[in-house]
Amino acid sequence: MDKSDNKKRNKGGRTPKTDPSIHRHVFRLTDEENAKLLTLFEASGMPNKAKFIISVLFGKEIKTIIIDKAMLDFYMRLTSFHSQFRSIGVNYNQVVKLLYRNFSEKKAAAYLYKLEKQTAEMAVLCQKIIHLAEEFQTKHLKK
């Protein structure tokens, strides 16, 4: 039996790659160089160290993602705060309807005046929140 004849009959196993990586290169690093390589590798987020080294050697783009938990937490809280303000605006119409339904027109107008003053203050505060969120996004998130 010929070897080529045996390969034709064996159908198990992994299909061979069209361009396998068969060339091996070995290089040595100092402790400082190794620490720097590992830091860059971890910052890249790539799953394979060999692919990372190849991408560095051949100048392929390497993306480094730095996530600042404090900034992310601040942004999430600011966004949550803004959504709470929006939900207050949705309830505003319901409150106005309840005032006119349950009180006389004169008393409802008095309560509505107080509500209007508070709403104006909240609108100014909401504009400040929107401005802070946009400023934060331009300064810290779009680098």
Rank of each mutant, 00 (worst) to 15 (best):
A110D: 15
S4N: 09
D68G: 05
K107G: 00
F81M: 13
I22A: 10
E33D: 10
L78K: 05
Q137W: 10
N10Q: 12
N34H: 15
K17I: 00
L57V: 14
T39N: 14
Q94Y: 08
N6A: 15
V95K: 00
A43D: 11
L29A: 06
L78E: 04
N48D: 15
K107W: 05
S55L: 00
L72V: 10
R28L: 08
M46A: 01
D5Y: 07
A43E: 11
K8F: 07
T15K: 11
N34P: 00
S104Y: 04
Y100S: 03
R77I: 01
F52I: 01
R9D: 06
Y92G: 03
A120K: 13
D31P: 05
D31K: 07
K69C: 05
R14S: 06
K69M: 06
S21Y: 08
A109V: 01
K49T: 02
N34L: 09
F52Y: 13
I129P: 01
D73G: 10
K7A: 13
P16K: 09
N91G: 04
F85C: 03
K107Y: 15
I22E: 12
E32N: 08
H82P: 00
S104M: 04
K106T: 15
T30P: 00
A35S: 13
L40I: 03
Y100E: 04
A110S: 12
V90H: 05
V96C: 01
E135L: 06
R101T: 15
E42M: 04
G89L: 02
E61P: 03
L112T: 00
V90D: 06
E121C: 01
R86T: 15
R28A: 09
I129F: 06
V96N: 05
K114F: 08
H82V: 13
L125Q: 11
H131D: 13
M71R: 11
M71F: 14
P20I: 07
A110E: 15
T119P: 01
Y113L: 09
K8L: 12
A109S: 08
V90M: 01
A123M: 12
E105T: 14
I130V: 15
V90S: 04
L29E: 02
V26M: 08
